[in-house]
């Protein structure tokens, strides 16, 4: 997280009131009680969201993989915003292969989330949120460290290909007309200049 954001967090009332002397179990209570949307800073005053404050708290606490697994799985099943917080934290702190392995199962989680940005609230979904964390450079007022793509890691044999819960994707996709693009030999040089 960038310094200005961190400063806004520690200056915020929510931080002072709700994030003092909080342990890993308290985090769950705080999320359940106060996190009603995901997001970074919002509004004209760029107020940090409870979500972001608690993410910052997690950065200080540095929970182990086991604790994260609890947040993600059991806790996350019950409380979607707890899962959202945990996936965000994993994205910030774990190495690329682990990020993919931890996060991808939740591309199946279609639950709704409210996302609050500077301009207002909008609907998003857990799977969309996770996908954005895997593919975007910036989320929730936080620059995400540059991760190698999944394909890269597959090439290096650090990851097995992901199997979508939809099963045999070939059939689903191949039913759409394939694009014919120049065919072989033209190598993207579609322009005809003789």
């Amino acid at each position: 997280m960038e310094k200005p954001v961190r400063e806004r967090i520690v200056d915020s009332y929510f931080w002072k009131d709700q994030c003092f002397a909080v342990n890993e179990a308290d985090i769950i209570d705080r999320v359940v009680e106060h996190v009603k949307f995901v997001g970074g800073t919002y509004g004209d005053s760029q107020k940090p969201s409870p979500f972001l404050c608690l993410a910052f708290k997690l950065l200080q606490l540095g929970p182990t993989d086991d604790v994260l697994q609890e947040y993600l799985e059991y806790g996350g099943e019950k409380f979607k915003y707890l899962r959202a917080l945990a996936v965000f934290y994993v994205r910030l702190t774990r190495k690329a292969t682990d990020v993919y392995l931890f996060l991808e199962p939740f591309l199946e989680d279609k639950r709704k989330l409210v996302m609050r940005t500077r301009t207002g609230k909008r609907l998003t979904f857990m799977d969309e949120f996770v996908d954005s964390l895997l593919t975007k450079e910036r989320m929730c007022s936080t620059t995400l460290w540059k991760m190698p793509s999944r394909a890269q890691l597959e090439d290096e044999e650090k990851l097995d290909p992901r199997i979508s819960p939809l099963g045999d994707i070939e059939n689903l996709l191949d039913s759409e007309p394939e694009e014919i693009d120049g065919g072989d030999g033209s190598d993207g040089n579609g322009r005809n200049r003789s």
Binding site: K110, F125, D127, D131, P165, L166, I169, L173
Partner: peptide, 16 residues
Amino acid sequence: EYAAWKLRELKRIKRD
């Protein structure tokens, strides 16, 4: 909601 999710998933797979 399932149908909407399925569409999002397909789009992701296609993009990747």
